[in-house]
Design a protein around this nucleic acid. Structure first.
Lengths: 152, 152
DNA sequence: ATTTGTAGGTTGCAAAATGCAAGTTAATTG
DNA sequence: CAATTAACTTGCATTTTGCAACCTACAAAT
């Protein structure tokens, strides 16, 4: 635990992992405009530490020579359960704008949520992970990304 | 997630929660001598923030008028799944002195580990949570705290 | 009942990390 | 080829951290 927290134990790192995992963010700019307002020097530093720690990989963007894509490694995507439990805990014990029903759904379908995170990672699917059970649909093998927003 | 990390997102806070949850630590001194060497001013600050955040409660120690006991609240013990996933992740992806077999056991018995953490919390059982499946015993309803060390 | 020790802090200060604004470089668009 | 954009870097002020020393209330020993 101590060793894990040496890498992850700060205000920003896990948020970056979350942005990559559930929001499909890849670029410096996307992280920067991610709502919470991280400073660019801190962002650069954290991305570098995540890379050094083997949690993300850098790769030049194919479409745009200026741009770099950051992508989770296998070690990075393996953080999915940690993030999920943290999300569930926050949803139950802190004041959130996330609908409780959605939290409950995730709590009851942990394995499916994790599996979906892995599927998106393997297939490089960048669409936001808004679990299929957001509004009225059920988490099944054939449902693919209906519309709906969980967090703004 | 962002809100959760506002409280928990730093180098020490989750370690304190861990010390209370799995090691049965209660006092300032115990946290202080907890191996990783937290400074006393930081420790005092984190304990206060944990209390302000509703994760721990202070109560005067019955035996010793000088001493204070810190105890997890319901909100605090609810972090058990987060800690467990973090522990499992670290066990698999970082270099640890924790035996892999023990990690695997916990991974296969998540619910039982969590249940044991809750039981100890409810009963104010301060013995270290070294899961019963550490060496050769199995996690069952009648096993109670056999000897064995997981982390030094 | 006075000294000695212990628990749980606080205080002061130096060093490190953070936040903010501005600047830099390379690739891209117009 | 001028303007824009992506991804940084730099300088500087503020905040947080780490370290050692100190303090106070209680407890134990003499």
């Amino acid at each position: 635990m101590s060793i894990s927290l040496e890498l992850l134990g700060d205000r920003w790192t896990l948020l970056l992992v979350r942005d990559m995992m559930v929001r499909g963010y890849r670029t410096f700019r996307e992280f920067q405009r991610s709502g919470e307002g991280i400073a660019t020097n801190i962002l650069a530093d954290r991305l570098q530490k995540l890379e050094a720690g083997g949690i993300v990989q850098r790769e030049p963007a194919a479409e745009d020579g200026r741009s770099t894509h950051y992508r989770l490694t296998a070690k990075g995507i393996a953080l999915a359960p940690v993030l999920l439990e943290l999300l569930i805990w926050g949803g139950h014990h802190e004041v959130t704008d996330a609908p409780c029903a959605a939290i409950d759904q995730m709590e009851q379908n942990r394995a499916a949520v994790i599996a979906e995170a892995y599927r998106r990672w393997e297939q490089r699917d960048p669409t936001p992970l808004i679990p299929p059970f957001t509004s009225n649909s059920r988490l099944g093998p054939k449902s693919n990304s209906p519309k709906g927003k969980l967090k703004r």
